[in-house]
Design a protein around this nucleic acid. Structure first.
Lengths: 158, 158
DNA sequence: CCCAACCTTGCCGTTTACGTGAGAGTTGGG
DNA sequence: CCCAACTCTCACGTAAACGGCAAGGTTGGG
């Protein structure tokens, strides 16, 4: 056990603008994602300000990556993340239940979700790779014609 | 040189429904893509029906792949394909010009476009791979905790 | 020539993923 | 306590990517 025990570092709570800026999103988008059930701020201030912790930011980063890089729709992302939010923060719930069977169920559930996410991404990679291969094929054809012209052309160019 | 020279097989001309169906798109989408300048039918019938050949269908297939698999916007796709349509069918234009310099320019242009497309796709693949790695990391962590519980759990389960 | 099935060009409707205020409340430094 | 900056919750506006319908023209088999 290290000195700073617990879930890594649960100290900082930031407001929506800072959280959004850190992952290059707008506050509006973050609120919209919440509206769709993709995440919930770790807490609210007395004045009802949304307060995010680092796991929230990580989640936002992941959401953005799924959207921008993988091109998934927010609906699909919601599917993939499902109520994982509840689980992640359900670290509390996880420790709350004494039932080891329940604990295993949660963990296995999580594992399955990871596997599914990985599979989705791998599938996408394969398709992209297929497109690369195809494009490379066409590129080769064009390159070949360039070579033809470069060896037969110069004679007529003289 | 084989017996059937020329651009592979320029015989069949199909109407929009058949073309769309072949690549699992709707006629509406195909028309919309045309409106955005992503492709132009090889010909029109007397009654102004759009008529597509196999290179058109290939193009549609590519567009759909870029959209569905790679997640590019139609605007980005338009960028990537630019006026490549003019070039592809500019096989005619290509053979029309006697200037070998012009021919080389066209070919090199095409090559550059292919290279750019490949680069875009490769970039996307790398990002997806990074996400896979990250997710696998988290998966491993969860799997580890499962193993912990599976070896320490059964004792309390007795 | 006739008709069902298909196509054409508008044009308005819809969903997704936000942008952009409006009006009111909250925070925090001076 | 005051005020600038930030945030809240509606609520309407918008661009992208089509769906769907209307009114009319085209195709092609019988």
């Amino acid at each position: 056990m290290t000195t700073k025990e617990g879930p890594v570092a649960a100290g900082r709570l930031i407001r929506i603008q800072e959280a959004a800026a850190e992952v290059r999103l707008t506050p509006r988008s973050v609120r919209y994602y919440e509206e769709l059930g993709l995440l919930k701020p770790a807490a609210r201030s007395d004045g009802d300000y949304r307060l995010y912790d680092d796991t929230d930011v990580e989640r936002l980063r992941f959401i953005k990556a799924l959207r921008d890089d993988a091109g998934f729709s927010l609906a699909e992302i919601a599917q993939m993340l499902e109520d994982e939010a509840a689980r992640e923060r359900g670290h509390a719930e996880y420790h709350a239940t004494t039932d080891p069977v329940e604990r295993m169920r949660i963990l296995h559930d999580r594992l399955a979700r990871f596997d599914h996410q990985i599979e989705m991404l791998r599938t996408k990679i394969e398709r992209l790779q297929a497109m690369v291969d195809e494009t490379e094929g066409r590129r080769t054809g064009t390159a070949a014609r360039i070579n033809e012209l470069e060896s037969s052309g110069p004679e007529s160019a003289r």
